[in-house]
Every structure is written in C-alpha cells, then in structure tokens.
Design a protein around this nucleic acid. Structure first.
Lengths: 325, 325
DNA sequence: ACTGTTCATCGAATCGATTCGACGGCGACA
DNA sequence: TGTCGCCGTCGAATCGATTCGATGAACAGT
C-alpha cells in the first residue's frame, strides 16, 4: 500500500537506517490505514527478545498476602515505563516455572520476589543464564543482583529511637518462628541487629515470635504483653500482628503513647489500608521494585558490562506518627 | 541426535500422528540429553497461539487495593492449571494496553477485572475480536461473557437476615459516592436491591455513602452512627470501612452484637487478614476467578460454539460469625 | 505376483518479522 | 565527462517451530 518493500517498512519503524521523509510519510499512512501492528511472536523469533519480564511471586501460607501487592504494582508500572510487560507466575514450584519461562524464551529477564535463604528458584536462575534480579536476600549472593530493604539499619534506627526517648525495657515482636526457620533472612537481620544494638547501648530487649494468622495473632499478642508488664516500648516487625494491634490494644485499654510507645516498619500504603497510627520506618516497596526493574533492564541491555553484580540495600527513613513518648 | 527429521520430533511431541515406540524413545532421550525446550516465539508464530492470557487490572485511587489480590491469585492459579500463563497489565490506560496485547498477538484471550459501566476497555475488547471475559458487570453486556457476584441477592439475603431477627431500623454503608458516579454497578445493584427489599417487608433502611480512605473513614462512620442512634443493625458494603469498624466500635464502646448487629459482605481471606468478626455473605473471589478463566478457555477453544455469550451471577452463602442477635 | 492399505517417517512450505549485502541514482569533485 | 561516495531502497536469508502431502516398507487379500 505504501509502495515500498517490507524491509523499508521495518527500517521506517525502527529507524535503524535513514528513510526519506516522503517514504516515511507513506509508510506511516499505510500503517494507520491498515491498523498494522507488528506480530510479537515473529519479532521475538527473529530478535530473540520478547519485551516481557517474568515476575515470580511466592505465596507462603504463613505470610501476609496483602503486603505482596505493594511490590507487584510498582514493578509492573516501572516495567511498562521501560517498555516491558510482566508475565506473572505464582506457582508453588517457582523453580519449575522459572525454568519453563526462561528456556522457552518467553521472557527477557526474571524478577524473584520474596527470596529466602536456600530458595530453589535461585539455583534455577543460575542454571538458565538469564538476567535476573532478586528482591529479598538469600545467603549466597555470588554473581547475583539483589535488592532489599536494609532491615538491620531499620532495626537499629528503631531501637535508638526508643532509647533516646528514655525507654529501657522494650519488646520486639518478630515474624513467626517458621519464617526464621524457613530462611526468611529479613527476620534474622532485623532481630539480630536489634538485639545487638540494644545490648551495646544498654537497653533491655525481649525478642518474641509473633503469629501471622488469626486467631493465633490475638492470643499471642495478649501473651506477649502479659508477660512483659514492665516494658514501655514495643517494636513490631510483623505485618499481620501490627495490623491487629490497634484493636487489640484498644480492647486491653492500653493507650498509645501514654501507656505504651509503639514503633514498627511498614509502608505508607500499608499504614493507610490498615489505619495504622504508629511511628514507623517507612519501607518503600515501590522504590525497591523500581530499583530492581531498573537494575534488571540494565543487565538485559548490557549483560556483564552493566557493572559488577551485587546487593543493594535500600535504607528507609522513620516517619513520626506520634506513637512514642 | 535421534536420527529423525524435525517433523518427526514435532509429531512425537504433539502426538498428532502415530510414532513407533522405538523412535519415540530415541526422541525422548535426545530431548533430555540436549535439554531441548520448544521456542515460544516460533511456536506462536506458526500456530497463532501463545498460551498466555492478558489480565487487565484497574487501580482506582478510591478503591481498596488489598482486595484485588484475592482475584489475581486464583486467576493465575486456575490459568496455569489449564496450561496458560498470565500477562498482567496495570496501566492507567487499560484500553490501550488491551489493544496492544491483543493486536500484537501476545495473548490468546483477555480477562478484564473490576469492570464498570461505560468502561473503555469493553469497547476496546469488542474492537479486537479476541476472546475475553469480564469480571464486574457493565451496563451493556451484549455479546460479552461476564462473571460477577450476585450483589442483589446478597443484599436481599442480608436484609432478610436482620429482619428475621427482629430488626426494624437498619443502616447500610455503601461504597463512596464517586464509586456510584463512576459506574461501579455493584454499588447500585447492592443498594437498590437492599432498599427495595426493605420497603417490601417493612424495614426502615437508611442508605449512606461510606468512605474509602483514612482519616475520612473514621469521621464518616462516626457521623453515620451518630445520626442513626436508634438503628439496631448495620449492613456494611464497603471494604475499607468495614476493615476500620472493629476498632472504631471499640472506641465508641459499642458491643457487637449486644448493642448493634453487624453484617457485611466479604471473602474468607479478607475476614482473616483484617480479623473481621462479622456475619457476612462470603464472596468468593477465588470461585469467581475460576469461573471466569474456565469460561475464557472454553471460548478460546471453541469460539462461538462454546455456547451463547452471557452473564453468570455467582451466588454466595451467609457465614454466621455471631455478630447478630 | 500384483494391487491396495496402513503405518511411520520425511521434505518442503509456512508463519511475520529483522537484517545484511547489494544496487541504482545523484551530487561533488577533479 | 568520468569517478567516487553517500543515501535510500530492495531482495533474500533467517529465526524455530508446525503441518500437509508424499513416499517407502510391511503386510493382507485375490
């Protein structure tokens, strides 16, 4: 319809060779007229690029699902801004899904969400030689690009915050014990850093395991509060538990911050959704996702030339909501 | 390596022609040895099928995001069970995204989540001639496959439930006014059915708009409760508001069900996440997603032969959590 | 011994894009 | 006027699968 060959159309579209203005106009007109859209399959066959990133989401029964959405959304949005679509895979056997997507060439790169120590998906990723980025820190990060929140810094920050206000007896509510056992390194990193800092500065810190499902959450929190009657501060590092806390403290007649100072770690959205009134380190899943995708696309474009592989720990600031005194 | 032609390998894999056991063994061995996986791009180019479904997720600022995940997960899982992967698109311009995915042949079919009346994505879907299923009911459903919860039946059910227990003065908290204005038909369908049933049976029902963001939620609920001091029952049709309700009633010193009977409409997961203790119609996003995907794959496989297009309203049962008397 | 079937396999065309090398036309320069 | 180079365009090969028609072997029937 434009009176030119297919190669000319291709060059007009990609701009990889010069095209006369006259020809370009005719091509554009014909494209509009015919509503032509390049076929993704053919393009990916020829170029070995798909414009799709695989997002591997892992759902653990014992984790708090709503928190996951905070990661997924910014990731898809950032990806789109960089020209990529997202293939979301939520299978239990994440390693198998990853391998399938990568080997069949459906994706240009992979994002692994909520990576734990010993995560089988990491081995699968190494085996495929596809670019990939982890969100969540495994034990062995050799040759991997990893992005995560700096949980240790966050923990120290919160401990200091309470200490500076004069608190000397504080309770930490961590994720459930099985999250520790399973390899959720964020739980270790937060708790260990908190414990160490507390002992350095002379703060009595009682580390407890929280729960992640009702009705265990309520029982567990009641028990923890009952057993530390002298504690004046509470550090919550457990999404499910902190979401239940306002109502529970209300039922117990505990006023915040008059009777108890509470600090935690969650995102702005999370605070909004659950009406959480606590001073908290503001984790930024959106930023994390953005950093991860940016890193991944760099790696896709430049391979090993995109710089050395490594771990990026993102620091977060404290947001004072007046729940401490 | 197996000493056969490519076509024989293809037939061995697909089983579309008979293959001698001996040859099949040699092919399988070679495939394992070479770690061969068919290239998705080439396959889709040849067959015009991708094994991918497009999932169009719409995020309205004024809606309650955590609820969305309840739909997304079962959808990806059901899809995978039927052999499909999910391409997730969350762009603001959903119509554009839909068109892009469909026209470039990236997907075999489309799922539209949270469809409203006058949704531009519906027009885009009609224009593509791709199989598609809507979750959420628009005004005009001609020629469309639609799946949604039966909100009208749910509303009548809850009204009857309170009436049968002797309540005669009840308040309904709906979604925010702009959800009605925007075309969220579930808000109309629920409210209109509730109002009509109430007038039929002689129940005084005050329909109010709820809010969806703090701190407006709290102020709004306080106002509603203050202005209907004689109401003995509360019907909550508003995720964000009902999530805040337990704490708020606690603060007001209102006991459930002694001082007030509360019923609502939400899923089991939602109740768990937010520790909601109310008797509720148990919406089942998982079932909805499953029905939608099943319908879509039928449509992909058999086109118009898969039966007439139409709307499936899924009914849901009431779960008594003891919040009424 | 010849014909007709059935079964397993092969060769070649095809899907729709990208890309490389080639080529004709034209202006610049000697 | 002849040569060189550049610019814009074209033709053909290619990516990796699927699929149709053809082919040869084995075997049964007359």
């Amino acid at each position: 319809m434009a009176g030119v060959s297919r190669s000319t159309v291709s060059y007009a579209l990609s701009g990889k060779r010069s095209i006369s203005p006259e020809t370009r106009r005719r091509v554009d007109d014909a494209i509009k007229e015919l509503k032509f859209t390049p076929n993704a399959g053919a393009r990916s066959l020829r170029t070995a690029q798909t414009g799709v990133l695989g997002l591997l989401v892992q759902f653990h029964e014992d984790e708090f699902a709503p928190a996951m959405l905070q990661y997924i959304l910014p990731i898809t949005e950032t990806a789109r801004a960089l020209g990529y679509d997202i293939l979301m895979m939520t299978e239990n056997d994440g390693a198998e899904a990853l391998t399938r997507a990568a080997e069949s060439g459906m994706v240009d790169g992979l994002i692994l969400l909520d990576v734990i120590d010993g995560d089988p998906r990491v081995d699968a990723l190494r085996a495929t030689h596809q670019p990939g980025v982890l969100v969540g820190l495994p034990g062995d990060t050799r040759g991997l690009d990893v992005v995560d929140l700096d949980f240790a810094a966050a923990a120290r920050n919160l401990v200091d915050h309470l200490f500076d206000l004069g608190h000397r007896d504080v309770v930490l509510v961590s994720p459930p014990r099985h999250v520790f056992d399973r390899g959720g390194t964020y739980s270790w990193r937060f708790r260990d850093a908190a414990v160490q800092r507390a002992s350095e500065i002379g703060l009595r810190l009682t580390a407890r395991y929280g729960e992640s499902q009702q009705p265990a959450i309520d029982a567990n929190l009641h028990e923890i509060l009952d057993e530390s009657p002298d504690a004046t501060g509470l550090i919550m590092h457990n999404d499910a538990s902190v979401a239940a806390l306002p109502r529970l403290l209300n039922e117990r007649g505990v006023r915040v911050p008059d009777d108890l100072s509470v600090v935690s770690l969650y995102s702005r959205d999370f605070a909004r959704w659950f009406s959480l009134p606590y001073t908290a380190i503001e984790s930024s899943p959106g930023l994390l996702g953005k950093v991860a995708i940016t890193q991944l696309t760099e790696r896709i474009a430049h391979g090993d030339d995109a710089g050395p592989h490594g771990t990026r720990l993102v620091a977060a600031e404290i947001v004072d909501r007046g729940s401490t005194r």
